[in-house]
Design a protein around this nucleic acid. Structure first.
Lengths: 188, 188
DNA sequence: ATATCTAACTAACAATCGTTAGTTTTGAAT
DNA sequence: ATTCAAAACTAACGATTGTTAGTTAGATAT
C-alpha cells in the first residue's frame, strides 16, 4: 500500500491547511515542504483548488455514507447516537488534518461548494431526525433538540483538535469515555 | 454611545474575517464594504494586523477576567460550571463575529501571538482545575477529565456558529437549556 | 543503445496584496 | 466667510500570488 506522489502532496497540503488555513498556504509552501519547486507540483495536480476539494469532498462522503447506514439501521435512538459518535471518532483518527479543512476551509470551495453544503445539510437533517424520534418516544431528555444536536455536533466536529498521537487524548480513551460524556453529561 | 469610525471598521472587519478568514480578506474588501478606498482605512488604523489583534485580544481578555472571578468565588463545582457556560453565552451574544476570529484566526497573530496563547492556556488550566476539584469530591461523574473539559469547551467555543438573531437558537433558549444539556447530557 | 515516460527544473506572466506619500474634499466651529 | 482638522481621494511601490510554457535529468522498457 504505497502512496502515490499525488497522495503525498494531498496529505502534506492538508497538514499545512490545518496549520495556517487554505488561503494562507501558498503553492510554494507546499513545494518547499516537499523539497521541490512550486511549478513541479503541477505535474501531479491541476490546481490548489483541486487539493482542497479532494480533501473535503472525500471526507464529507465518508460522513454521508456512515450516517446513511446508521439511519437505515433498526437500532434504538441511544444506540444510533453511539454509532454516530464512533463514526466521528474513526474518521477523525484516520486523518485529523482532513477534518480541519472540512471544518475551517469549506467556504473556499468553488465548483464543489454547493455539493458540499448539500451533503452537510443532509447530514445534519439525518442527525436531527434521530434526535426527534428519541424525544418522541421518551428515550431522550425533554430539552430543545437543536441545542442537543448542536452540543453533540460541536464536540464531534472539533475532535481533531484534541486527538493526537502524542500529548493529546488517545483513541481508546476517546472511544470509551466520549459516548458516556455526551449522552450522560458531566454530572450524571 | 456612538461608534467611532475606527470601531465601525473593526466591527466590519470581524464580520468579513468570520465569512472568509483573516488571510482571504483584503483591505480592499473591507474598504468596499464601507464604500471607501482601501488607502482611506489607514487614516483610522495602523495595519490589517492591528484589526485582528484588537478583535482577538479584547475578546480573550473578557474570558480571562470572567474566568478569574469564577475561580475565586466560593461556589460549588456545578455552580462554577454553570457560570462558565453563562460567561460564554454572554460574550458570544455580545459579538459573535469576534468569537469566530478568536477561534479561527488566532494563528495569524504576530506580535500578540504568545500573549494570546498564554491567556488561552491559563483559561483552560483554570477550567481543568475546577473539573478536577469536582471529580475529587464526587460532584462530577467519574470519567476522563480531559474529555469532559474538551466536550464542554468545544461546545462553548463554537456557540457563535449557532447563535443568530434570525434563524438560529435564541439567547433565552440557550441560557435555559444549554447548561442542562452539558451538565446532564442528552439522555439524562 | 534507443526510445519512452515521469517528474523535476528555469523563467516568466498577469493579477493582487498591504501599505505609503501626497493631495483634495468635507463639515463643523469660529 | 475663514479656519482647521478629519477623512476621503489618486497614484504608485515592491512583494507575493497561482499558474503556464518550455526544457532537462533520471529511470525503465525495448
Amino acid at each position: 500500500m504505497k502512496v502515490s506522489r499525488k497522495e503525498e502532496i494531498i496529505l502534506l497540503a492538508a497538514k499545512l491547511f490545518r496549520e495556517k488555513g487554505y488561503s494562507a498556504v501558498t503553492m510554494r509552501d507546499i513545494a518547499d515542504a516537499l523539497g521541490v519547486k512550486a511549478a513541479s507540483l503541477y505535474n501531479h495536480i491541476r490546481s490548489k483548488q483541486e487539493l482542497l476539494s479532494t480533501i473535503i469532498i472525500q471526507t464529507a462522503t465518508q460522513f454521508t455514507e456512515g450516517m446513511q447506514a446508521i439511519v437505515e439501521s433498526p437500532e434504538s435512538t441511544s444506540q444510533k447516537l453511539r454509532h454516530i459518535i464512533e463514526l466521528h471518532i474513526e474518521i477523525t483518527i484516520q486523518n485529523p488534518d482532513f477534518l480541519a479543512a472540512l471544518n475551517n476551509d469549506w467556504m473556499h470551495l468553488e465548483e464543489d461548494l454547493q455539493f458540499f453544503l448539500q451533503m452537510r445539510e443532509g447530514y445534519e437533517e439525518n442527525f436531527r431526525s434521530i434526535i426527534k424520534v428519541g424525544l418522541a418516544n421518551g428515550e431522550i431528555a425533554d430539552r430543545d433538540p437543536e441545542i442537543m444536536l448542536f452540543s453533540m455536533l460541536s464536540t464531534l466536529r472539533t475532535l481533531y483538535l484534541w486527538y493526537a498521537k502524542k500529548g493529546g487524548i488517545d483513541a481508546k480513551t476517546l472511544k470509551t469515555d466520549m459516548p458516556d460524556t455526551l449522552l450522560c453529561g458531566v454530572l450524571g
